[in-house]
Design a protein around this nucleic acid. Sequence first.
DNA 1: GGAAAATGCTCAGTGCACTGACTAAATCTT
DNA 2: AAGATTTAGTCAGTGCACTGAGCATTTTCC
Lengths: 145, 145
Amino acid sequence: MAAVDLNTHPGHLARRLQQAHSLLWGAMVSEEITSPQFAVLNALVEKPDIDQRTLSEHVHLDRSTIADVVARLVRRDLVERVRDPHDGRRNVLKLSDEGARLHRKLVTRTTRMNRVFLAPLDEGEQETLLRLIGRVADAAEELRG
Amino acid sequence: MAAVDLNTHPGHLARRLQQAHSLLWGAMVSEEITSPQFAVLNALVEKPDIDQRTLSEHVHLDRSTIADVVARLVRRDLVERVRDPHDGRRNVLKLSDEGARLHRKLVTRTTRMNRVFLAPLDEGEQETLLRLIGRVADAAEELRG
DNA sequence: GGAAAATGCTCAGTGCACTGACTAAATCTT
DNA sequence: AAGATTTAGTCAGTGCACTGAGCATTTTCC
């Protein structure tokens, strides 16, 4: 039975892409803060005082993964987590000053990193790649949204 | 300070893509065998009797991750792991009959799944997406190869 | 032939990501 | 107002993926 060419398998390629990205992230952006953690900081800059549920929709991570990621940010004093007095089920999240400061610093680094990461493609190809990945991911998330 | 649009960040998109893929995989291919495990089975169909090192290069997983994945396949009797008598450092890997049978079954399912996963794109776009991801991943892996 | 270097693997530690089961709080229904 | 349902979060369990340290076995170099 013939083996399959994994280079025609989007899942395998996606894993490689993500892996390569996270390696470069460690080298060019931060060894302390990971890309998902940055996504959370970024979401809290955009929408302060949201709860974990809303946050999880925003960054496309599920509720229990968010809980872990937020816990790590809380441990580093980058995020505060307080029980909502108006709704005892919710945790309200807010950036600390240090969290906001770190976010600012990382924004410039991620921009630089993205340039390097996508450098093998010309400008049009870069735009195409991001758009196509977005469409496939959106559609697949829709399937079990 | 303005927040960033994560949809312009390839790392974030890659993570979403991979996640969406693994969800669909569980629904359409197998709940027992994961996509990385399939990649290993597939590599062993293509190149029988290789050691873990060679395998890891082949599927782009690092040595210690491979050890884990292979251990799970061994536990399910899909793969055999034997110490190489000619070189006491190496583990020689081979598919069991059951492993080969399972691989055959999964090949047809993954083909079907890839079609569904990429359905939002037309044929040309699909080809483009795979090619562009491949180029970026290759280049990034090269950086710290 | 013996010390030094390289190679293959394992192990502990950390982080991401999911599911499924559970607790607690709010809301909806009657 | 009491019971049922929905919603937010936590916890345990599994799997992927890396780093860095360590161990054993070659191989290389004098």
